[in-house]
Simulated scan of single mutants.
Amino acid sequence: MYTYIVKRLLVAIPTLLIVSIFVFSLQKLLPGDPILAMAGEERDPAVLELLREKYHLNDPLPAQYAYWLGGALTGDLGVSLRSNEPVLNLIAAKLPVTIQLAVMAIFFAFLIGIPMGILAAVKKNTALDYLASFVALSGLSIPNFWLGIMLILLVSVKLGWLPASGYEPFFADPLRSLETMVMPAFVLGNALAATLMRHTRSAMLSVLSADYIRTARAKGLSERAVVFEHSFRNALLPIVTLSALLFGELLAGAVLTEQIFTIPGFGKLIVDAVFTRDYSVVQGVVLCTATGFILMNLIADLLYFVLNPRMRATL
């Protein structure tokens, strides 16, 4: 197993290096000059030159990248040009918010997608199967921003059940925190549930047609035991690995949802940074989300190895 982990890490390291190059390039691709914004309205040439020297913008691009990468490896992602705070502190403040949203969203995805996938597979080619497929297709087709707005109008404005926006830290007020995060988590989890349902159905259909399932039924086992103890357990492999990848997508893909519900997470942070040309923050957030996605991909590979005995037998 250790050999397998080392191999996956050796693949992840150059991937992270390539990602860092693209992240650094954002500074040159985004329009505008952050130094002009920092210098104020007068824009004294001496001040501009001093700022360029301070942030190494007069150095050649390879030297700028090496300086930035060296800082990133030691935890120094630069300083926000807007708030003058270390980017790492901003990320540390926003990351728990996005993680909470992602965890709650994946919970909704499990709660909706897996039971629907099992039901659709067991009731193949029946009205329940078609209904589950229709719901899954609807979840994939409905844009998150539209669903979020509709939920705000119905649940918050019309019924007054949940707050329309805002955020409360979980450890400050757990109940209030859950109330503010239920709707955005459902919006994100709804789309993931559709993907999870389709994969669960496909995996279950593949397992239900296997010889050992027919043998289990021939032995007189109840349908419940056949479905949950034999079929679902063996269908878990692709579902678990897919879930790890979906969680990585959540860390990077909650921008619109966080904007709609005014959640101060990664999405809102990066949107505000782009509008204010705060390139250091943009680079730090993108690098962090890319690293999180690669990490979840690595976890998915390890889970596949742990859950699949045939892969362990080949080593």
Score class of each variant (00 low, 15 high):
280 S>L: 14
289 T>C: 14
312 R>H: 15
179 E>N: 08
308 N>I: 09
297 N>Q: 07
274 V>C: 00
221 L>F: 12
127 A>D: 00
120 A>P: 01
243 S>L: 15
296 M>V: 02
78 G>D: 12
284 G>L: 05
221 L>A: 00
200 T>V: 04
87 V>D: 09
199 H>Q: 15
144 N>K: 07
163 P>I: 10
80 S>A: 11
174 P>V: 10
130 Y>C: 00
54 K>P: 07
104 M>S: 06
216 A>T: 03
48 L>G: 07
122 V>M: 06
187 V>C: 08
154 L>K: 11
109 A>W: 00
3 T>L: 10
194 A>F: 11
158 K>G: 03
134 F>W: 09
33 D>C: 13
109 A>S: 14
57 L>Y: 12
201 R>G: 11
191 A>D: 02
114 I>S: 03
9 L>P: 11
64 Q>R: 14
286 V>H: 04
109 A>Q: 00
139 G>D: 00
11 V>I: 15
297 N>C: 02
115 P>F: 13
128 L>F: 08
182 V>P: 02
141 S>P: 08
89 N>C: 00
66 A>L: 15
32 G>P: 08
139 G>I: 05
202 S>V: 10
270 I>G: 03
141 S>D: 01
145 F>A: 04
217 R>I: 11
184 P>D: 08
210 A>N: 13
23 V>C: 09
108 F>A: 04
67 Y>E: 13
114 I>E: 01
145 F>I: 11
43 R>W: 04
161 W>S: 06
30 L>P: 05
101 L>Y: 01
134 F>K: 02
154 L>V: 15
156 S>K: 10
58 N>H: 03
109 A>L: 01
211 D>P: 14
213 I>A: 03
192 L>H: 03
288 C>W: 13
101 L>D: 01
41 E>F: 12
172 A>L: 14
95 L>I: 12
288 C>A: 15
36 L>A: 05
107 F>K: 04
271 V>S: 01
108 F>D: 04
235 A>T: 14
135 V>A: 11
173 D>C: 00
290 A>G: 14
192 L>S: 10
177 S>V: 09
19 V>W: 11
167 Y>C: 09
305 F>G: 06
308 N>V: 07
25 S>N: 09
97 V>L: 05
97 V>Y: 02
59 D>W: 08
82 R>I: 15
98 T>R: 03
56 H>N: 12
293 F>Y: 14
46 A>L: 09
178 L>K: 05
88 L>N: 10
260 I>P: 00
265 G>F: 01
126 T>A: 04
71 G>A: 08
183 M>Y: 02
281 V>C: 08
197 M>D: 02
295 L>Y: 13
310 R>I: 12
57 L>G: 07
252 A>L: 02
290 A>W: 03
186 F>T: 10
57 L>A: 03
115 P>D: 09
206 S>H: 12
298 L>A: 11
283 Q>S: 12
215 T>Y: 08
177 S>W: 06
3 T>F: 11
199 H>W: 08
155 V>K: 10
94 K>W: 01
161 W>A: 06
271 V>Q: 01
256 L>A: 07
180 T>Q: 09
